[in-house]
Every structure is written in C-alpha cells, then in structure tokens.
Computed example of a mutant assay.
Amino acid sequence: MKKLINDPSRVVDESVEGFGLAHADLVAVHTDPIFVSRAGGARQGKVGLVSGGGSGHEPLHAGFVGLGMLDAAVPGAMFTSPTPDAIAPATVAANGGAGVLHIVKNYTGDVLNFETAAELADADGIEVRSVIVNDDVAVEDSLYTAGRRGVAGTVAVEKIAGAAAERGDDLAAVTAIAERVNANVRSMGVALSACTVPHAGVPSFELTEAEIEIGIGIHGEPGRRRIPMAPADEITEMLTTPVIEDLGIGGSDQVLLLVNGMGGTPLSELYVVYRTARRILEGRGATVARSLVGNYVTSLEMQGCSVTVLRLDDELTTLWDAPVHTAALRW
C-alpha cells in the first residue's frame, strides 16, 4: 500500500484540517467532534442543510458546503458512518431558525445515526426533517443497507435542495424538492479495481486484471455480476440501460447526465463514457439538457465510474442552474 498519509488512524483528522486551511473563505472546521460548517455561520431565516457519511468519498460531503448547497457536513471515519455526537452539533450550526433538512444516503449506520441526531436536535427545539437518498439501481439489500444504496445521485439532491433553501423556501418545501429529486434520479457504477482503506492496508475486495464488477457500491460492496473486462462502450451500455429502464426515460424527457469518477479513473476516460451514455439516452428520445463529468462521489483510489440520470422539469432545471459556490462545485 502506497498512500500519502502519516498515521492511518489520523487520516481523516489531517485531511479535514487541510481542507479547512485550503478553503477558509468557504468553511469552518470543528474538531471535537469533527464537522464542517459554512464560514460565517448559518444564515438567519434560511433552512439549513446537513449531510455526511464515511470519509473516502471526497469531495462528498464537505466539498459541497457553501452557497447554494450544504450548511454543514459530517465526515465519519473511512467508510464508517459519523456518530450522532458529531451530527447533532452540525445540525445546531446549520440552524438559522427555519429548521434543518438532513440529507442521508441509504446506509444503515447513516440512517440510524442521523435519526438519533434529529431526536437530539428536536429536544433542543430545532425542527428536523430527513430525506433518504437511494438512487442505486444495481442491488437491493447490500452489505451496508436495507434497500437501495445512496450514491452519486446525492450530489443532485444536495445541489437542488440547496438552491431551494437559498431562494427562501420553507422546510416543508425544501424537503419536498429533495424528495422529488430522489424520486427522479438513478445511478449505477462499475469497478475496474478495488480500493484500499488506510487502516486495513489491503484491497477491500479482489479483482483480477481481467475482471470488472458491474453494479459496485461506493464502499466496495458487491454488484450485480463480475464479468471479463470489456470495451468502454459495452460497459457504459451495461450501466446506462438499467438506469434508463428503471426511470422509464423516453420520448420528451429532459435529463441531467452525470458521469462520476470513483477516484482513480482519468477524466479522459470519463468523457469516453459520457459520449456513449449520451448517445444511448438520445437514442431513447431523451434530451440531455444538463451535464456534469468528474470525480464527485469517489471511493478512495478505486478505478471505475458511475452513470447517473436525473429526469428534469422546469423548476428542477432552474434550481440546478442557480448559483453555487463550494470547494467542489461552483458556477
């Protein structure tokens, strides 16, 4: 294992410290317990958005703290859910008096710990609602979750709900927008290689040089099937077609197409995947109205990618286009 780390047990602490130093104009880092909030604190009268999860998926979630997206993010240990004692103060920090929305990827530990933190916040007089993101079409009931996993579609939920909060929507309206995005977004991923969690020191699963895993989870959970390595167009077809069919995309649909890297795949290869995924969508009659290509929900240094499709309407498109200024996403 070769990694630019010091002590494996200190990777998250040192990484978050460096992130805070690099983006001090955008975020404030809190260390005991560890969470990241917007620089300058919560905006009064605005619904606060909080998300979080195990580290190793950067820039998710801390990279999306800032104008137009999250108000706070809670990084857990590598591939490990954050604890309620960190989520609760992050919720307080995000509260501007209009309530707080928790955006939670559908992993059992995340769901339970965010629920506990919401109960603690409620006891402090903060109204909290939650949206569970479960966009992965690959498998139901994996190692980490009951039901579908939350993966790269989380970026769309955080961006669009964040824009709704920024324009002044109340908590019920922001929650409804987040739920609408989740209902209309689907993803599926592939791994060409495994990743190595620092404290483990060995790959999280085994793939030979001739194999790939279709439908992989962002923690290395098994996918739909393991197959021989294939050309990019064939792999992209295996990812994109189930997403389209699950959403029922066709005819007059306008969509956002996100090709997300898992951390170890060059951008040049992600654009090869995007090219084919777009062609497949357009072949079904859909219009790709918005696009995003890059590393947004990663799995350490895993080679691979995921394809995410969000069915858009006029309001969701307007909210996607609304200004955003975070470390990892800005326009």
Rank of each mutant, 00 (worst) to 15 (best):
K3H: 04
K3V: 01
L4H: 01
N6F: 14
V12M: 13
D13L: 13
V16Y: 11
E17H: 12
G20E: 02
A22K: 06
H23G: 00
V29I: 15
T31Y: 11
D32A: 13
P33H: 12
P33E: 02
S37W: 14
A39I: 06
G40M: 03
G41S: 04
R43K: 12
G45C: 05
G45R: 14
G45W: 15
K46L: 09
V50C: 11
V50S: 04
V50N: 11
V50W: 10
G53W: 13
S55E: 04
E58D: 04
P59S: 03
L60E: 08
H61I: 03
G63L: 02
G63R: 09
V65C: 08
V65A: 04
G66D: 03
G68I: 11
L70N: 01
D71G: 09
D71L: 08
A72T: 11
A73K: 10
G76A: 13
T80Q: 08
P82F: 11
P82V: 10
P82I: 12
P84S: 10
A86K: 14
P89N: 12
P89E: 04
P89C: 13
V92P: 10
N95Y: 09
V100Q: 07
V100S: 13
Y107K: 09
E119C: 10
A121I: 14
A123E: 15
A123M: 09
E127R: 15
E127M: 15
E127T: 15
V128T: 05
R129A: 08
D136S: 12
V139W: 13
E140P: 07
D141I: 06
D141A: 08
T145V: 04
A146R: 15
G147N: 01
R149Q: 08
R149P: 12
V155H: 12
V157K: 09
K159G: 03
K159P: 02
G162W: 13
A164V: 14
A164K: 01
E166T: 12
R167L: 05
G168N: 11
D169S: 06
V174C: 01
T175S: 00
T175Y: 03
E179A: 06
A183G: 03
M188A: 12
A194M: 04
C195R: 00
P198T: 09
H199V: 10
V202H: 08
V202F: 14
L207A: 01
T208A: 02
T208P: 02
A210L: 08
A210H: 10
E211N: 06
I212W: 10
G215K: 09
G215A: 02
H219P: 06
G220W: 00
G223Q: 07
G223A: 03
M229K: 15
M229Q: 15
I235Q: 09
I235R: 11
P242Q: 02
V243H: 03
I244F: 07
D246G: 03
I249Q: 02
I249S: 02
G250R: 06
G251L: 01
Q254A: 15
G264H: 05
T265W: 14
L270F: 04
Y271P: 04
V273R: 11
R279F: 00
R279Y: 00
I280W: 13
T287V: 15
S291M: 05
L292T: 02
T298Q: 08
S299C: 06
L300S: 07
E301S: 01
E301W: 08
G304E: 09
V307M: 04
L310V: 09
E315W: 11
T318R: 15
A322K: 03
A322T: 03
T326N: 00
T326L: 00
T326I: 06
W331I: 10
W331R: 14
